[in-house]
Nucleic acid binder design. Structure first.
Lengths: 225, 225
DNA sequence: CTGATCTTAACTGTATACAGTACAGTATTC
DNA sequence: GAATACTGTACTGTATACAGTTAAGATCAG
């Protein structure tokens, strides 16, 4: 027990968080098997807590598991990304609708303040930083809809498409912030239908767009190694 | 390796399935700690694979985990059930909309056939059987929307509210089948808005209804023991 | 009888050992 | 030369041991 690891956290929790980040950013290559002995050594733990963490990540679809062969990194499949985008769109539309219903004026104002603070410009931010800001905006919105179950699933969906978005954000970095402002304006007016419509435009992505962006994603995954 | 357990399944997978069923039906009492040694002995396994299965179930919110204290059965909280019902409603509305868009006429006909086969009457079925049939109907519908990610989450939501529904179904056993028919009719007409509206009526449940039905649920949980 | 403190038993957290299995690499045969 | 059988190595699957921690029970003061 020497590292300055985040305390108050069990070893399994710690491993879970670290490996989840590795899975998100494809430090494991798509479809490749994970060597437990080697990974355990690298993270300074034994195989027992490591496998417990890996099992959690299997349940959250970051990894897959095959009887007798072990744990594997998920693949980056166009169809799956498309379904996750579609799912995200559904979650966000519901989020907007419920927010129109439940959020107080003060809470909506907080959202406006957040957009003001993060500025209308991208401020020289990296693609990853822009994605992070975008996710925070949507998390705040989801929090106002007062449904923690949907919030939890949205977090999972966002994490699973995050790598893809890092790549994709480069192409449309300018648009995001302005679209957020329009959505909040519609919420302030309590115009749920309009807000949902704007949200759909903001999120939806066609399968062919995804397919071509995934090619770029793959090339970056293997460039980095 | 003696039991006639479902083969081709790893021990962890087997434990996972068995314990999940136990969690769904509250064989573990709400909030109570799970004794690993005792449960391992009861299921004829050692603690290592048992804990791997328990960790998966924590990730799926059937159990909770506290550092240094172990695994606990989830509680049955009105607010959480309400949010799950709301979530289910969102998922099913999306399912209906996408089905209107993507399903072939033949697929919709299969749905009609399924309703015909399971009859307009409850046929003396138990509450649990009716809930199971209802879940199958909604799974089939979700399959037609061609989004496996949403299907997977719907399964999880359904499993988590299942015990509650076993209790609740007694009160409204007659209604379900007829509502399903109306929904399918709207889908056949490709009238998405109407189908969604019917689905909302079919699923939504107010928080106060849930709260009172949960009292009944708790009494049955502790009766059974 | 109530509350605090100490002691002890029970249980969790993790490492490790070993058995069994998958897979690669080599040899052998056609 | 290609295909198949064999053998060895590496890795997973699971049990178990032990250390550390929590929680309960007993003892004693107020």
């Amino acid at each position: 027990m020497n590292e300055k690891k985040t305390r108050e956290l069990s070893r399994v929790d710690h491993l879970y968080l670290v490996i989840k980040e590795m899975a998100i950013s494809f430090d494991f290559k798509p479809g490749k098997r994970i060597n437990e002995v080697e990974l355990a050594a690298r993270l300074g733990a034994s195989r027992t807590p490591l496998r417990e963490a890996l099992n959690r990540l299997v349940a959250e679809e970051f990894l897959t598991f095959q009887q007798g062969r072990g744990f594997f990194c998920r693949e980056l499949k166009p169809r799956e990304m498309f379904e996750l985008y579609q799912f995200r769109s559904v979650l966000e539309a519901a989020s907007v609708r419920l927010t129109c219903e439940y959020a107080t004026a003060a809470e909506v104002q907080d959202l406006v303040d957040f957009l003001d603070q993060t500025g209308p410009e991208d401020g020289g931010r990296s693609s990853a930083e822009l994605v992070a800001l975008d996710e925070i905006f949507h998390q705040k919105l989801m929090a106002l809809s007062r449904n923690r179950e949907m919030a939890r699933v949205l977090d999972n969906v966002n994490a699973r498409i995050r790598y893809f978005r890092w790549v994709d954000m480069d192409a449309r970095r300018a648009e995001t912030q302005g679209e957020h402002r329009k959505i909040v304006a519609a919420i302030e007016a309590r115009d749920a239908d309009h807000a949902v419509q704007l949200m759909d435009l903001h999120i939806n992505k066609r399968l062919d767009q995804i397919t071509s962006a995934i090619k770029e994603s793959y090339s970056r995954i293997y460039m980095a190694s």
